[in-house]
C-alpha cells in the first residue's frame, strides 16, 4: 500500500486534493474499522483519485455528543473541525462512517461548513457507474448469499439505500434482503450514543434481535457500511455462535477483495 497523503503535506507542496477522506474516530482507532479505512484508501489509490486525510488534525465530528444531548460539546467539535476544513479549502468529503456523513452533510452547513459530502458506498457506486471500478482479479463472490444491513444514519436518516446494494450487485452474488430492510431496517443498537453506554434494562440485546433477521435469510455474509454496525453485528454473530457460517464485511472490504487490491 502506498503512503497515505495528509492535508498538511499536500498544503505544504501547494497542492489541493480532489477529495478529503474523513476517516472518523472508529476508522482511526478501532482495529476492525482501521482495516476498512485502509481498504477505502486502497480503492482511492486503485482508481487514482487524488485524496488526502487530515490525520492528527481530524477530531470527532461531535455526533455521539449531539445524539446524547450535549449540544455544547457538539458545536465545539463542529466549529473546530469547520475551521480546519475551511482552512484547507475543502470542497468534497468522503466519509467511512454514516454518522460522520450525516453530521458533516446535514449539521455542519448551519455552523458555517458547507461541503459536498458522500459516504464511501456512494463513492464506490459512482466509480462502478463510471466504469473505473469492476469486480475482477480477486475473490469471487459469485452465487454467494449476501445480505445488506442498512445503517440508520445512511438509510432512514439520509435515504441512501441503493448505493451499497449497487456495490454488491456487480459481484454477481445472490443479494437477499432481510424482512426488515431499507426504510424498515432494524437498528443494530449502537446509535444515539448507545455504543458508549450499557443498554437500559430489557429482555434482549438489539443486535441479537437483528441476528434473527440475518439467520432467516440464510446469508453467509452480512455486508454493512458503518463501523458501529460492524461491531454490533460481529458481536451478534458471536452471541449466536455463528462465526463459522456468517462473516460480517464492510462494502469497502468486499470491493477490495473482489478486485484483489
Amino acid at each position: 500500500m502506498e503512503q497515505i497523503p495528509t492535508m498538511a503535506e499536500m498544503a505544504a507542496e501547494g497542492k489541493e486534493p480532489e477529495i478529503l477522506f474523513w476517516v472518523g474516530c472508529a476508522g482511526s482507532f478501532d482495529e476492525r474499522a482501521q482495516k476498512i479505512t485502509r481498504d477505502i484508501c486502497k480503492i482511492l489509490q486503485h482508481v487514482g483519485i487524488s485524496y488526502a486525510v487530515l490525520g492528527t488534525e481530524e477530531s470527532c465530528t461531535g455526533d455521539p455528543a449531539k445524539r446524547a444531548g450535549n449540544e455544547f460539546l457538539f458545536q465545539m467539535q463542529a466549529m473546530t473541525n469547520i475551521e480546519v476544513l475551511n482552512g484547507y479549502n475543502i470542497k468534497k468529503i468522503v466519509t467511512g462512517c454514516p454518522h460522520c456523513f450525516n453530521t458533516i452533510r446535514n449539521e455542519y452547513p448551519g455552523l458555517g461548513g458547507t461541503y459536498e459530502v458522500i459516504h464511501h458506498t456512494q463513492l464506490i457506486q459512482s466509480l462502478i457507474d463510471e466504469g473505473k471500478l469492476k469486480a475482477e482479479g480477486g475473490e469471487s463472490f459469485k452465487g454467494r448469499k449476501i445480505t445488506f444491513h442498512d445503517p440508520c444514519y445512511l438509510g432512514r436518516a439520509n435515504n441512501v439505500y441503493e448505493a451499497p446494494r449497487a456495490a454488491l450487485e456487480i459481484l454477481d452474488t445472490e443479494l437477499v434482503e432481510m424482512k426488515r430492510c431499507k426504510s424498515n431496517g432494524l437498528c443494530c443498537g449502537a446509535g444515539g450514543a448507545q455504543m458508549f453506554k450499557e443498554p437500559e434494562k430489557g429482555n434482549k440485546e438489539i443486535n441479537d434481535e437483528r441476528m434473527l433477521d440475518v439467520i432467516e435469510t440464510g446469508a453467509s455474509v452480512i455486508a454493512s457500511g458503518c463501523p458501529f454496525c460492524m461491531t454490533m453485528l460481529t458481536d451478534g454473530v458471536k452471541h449466536m455462535e455463528k462465526e463459522q457460517d456468517i462473516k460480517v464485511l464492510d462494502i469497502a472490504e468486499i470491493t477490495v477483495r473482489a478486485n484483489g487490491l
Binding site: C25, S28, T56, C60
Partner: peptide, 17 residues
C-alpha cells in the same frame, strides 16, 4: 477529540499498519 481514551496524536497510526 474522540469518544474513546486515545490520544489525538495517534490518529494516523492506522496508516502505519
Amino acid at each position: 477529540g474522540a469518544p474513546w481514551k486515545y490520544s489525538q496524536a495517534d490518529r494516523l497510526n492506522w496508516a502505519e499498519k
